[in-house]
């Protein structure tokens, strides 16, 4: 199993009105291909910043971040867009589906701009929405909407699946089923999953846990025998 992501001294400084905020300072870690990683930390610790950098949504102040041997540091906007387009799938806390597109069309929206994508229909079948494809988001439950969002991310056939508090807006049972889906996807499709959360209970299912606090990677844990989704509770 090779290394997919390698971060070295990753640092992000936000500047506004001569005020500099150190959001992330010298964070280093590596993530194996096909592994399930949880980034854990309280709010304001720098999780989202890290997610933004991993997702190519923001530029790196300094340090190095390679994803699939692609160096993100110093990339131009256009290159970052291409990176997001082809290499990253994103699952949001609030799903971010287009309200006037059906479930199927929401997946097509993502697939339309990338190469080597999976069939949207098959992907929706995989996430258990075979009969809901023609429904609009407003006709779907929160869990179903998140499934569409996961299908949208997976259908792009990305190297990396980034999830921002994917269970945050869902009830316990639904949250668990979504987590299970993500977990299975990572195992069955051999996708590298990075999940950002403040919910410590989720860490038990991960191969690797990165603890973020005050903009620093406080601790990195490897778990050789992660628990199954069914075994954890919160």
């Amino acid at each position: 199993m090779g290394i997919l992501i390698e971060a070295k001294n990753l640092t992000k400084i936000y500047k506004s009105n001569q005020l500099e905020t150190l959001a992330l300072s010298n964070v280093s870690f590596s993530i194996n291909e096909g592994s399930f990683t949880v980034i854990l930390g309280p709010s304001g610790a720098g999780k989202t910043t890290l997610l933004n950098l991993l997702g190519g949504m923001d530029d790196i102040t300094y340090g190095s971040l390679t994803v699939d041997s692609l160096e993100l540091f110093g990339m131009k906007q256009k290159q970052l867009t291409n990176y997001r387009r082809n290499s990253v799938g994103f699952v949001f806390q609030f799903y971010n589906l287009m309200n006037n597109l059906t479930a199927l069309e929401n997946v097509e929206l993502a697939v339309e701009v990338c190469k080597d994508a999976f069939s949207p229909k098959e992907t929706l079948e995989k996430v258990g929405l075979k009969d809901r494809m023609k429904n609009f988001p407003s006709q779907l439950s929160g869990g179903e909407q998140q499934r569409v969002s996961i299908a949208r991310a997976i259908a792009k056939n990305p190297k990396l699946l980034l999830c921002d508090e994917p269970t945050g807006a869902l009830d316990y049972q639904t949250g668990k089923s979504i987590l299970k889906l993500l977990y299975d996807m990572s195992r069955n499709e051999r996708k590298t999953v990075v999940l950002v959360t403040h919910n410590a209970a989720l860490k038990d299912i991960a191969d690797q846990v990165i603890y973020i606090k005050n903009g620093k990677a406080e601790k990195i844990e490897y778990q050789s025998n992660p628990k199954k989704v069914e075994e954890i509770e919160w």
Binding site: G55, M57, K78, T81, N82, Y83, R84, R85, N86, V88, F90, F92, N96, M98, L109, A110, V113, C114, R152, K156
Partner: peptide
């Protein structure tokens, strides 16, 4: 704005 942001995250180029 939210739709625009989502499209950008999905890797849509500005022109698109």
């Amino acid at each position: 704005k939210r739709e625009i942001a989502t499209l950008e995250v999905l890797g849509y180029h500005y022109k698109e």
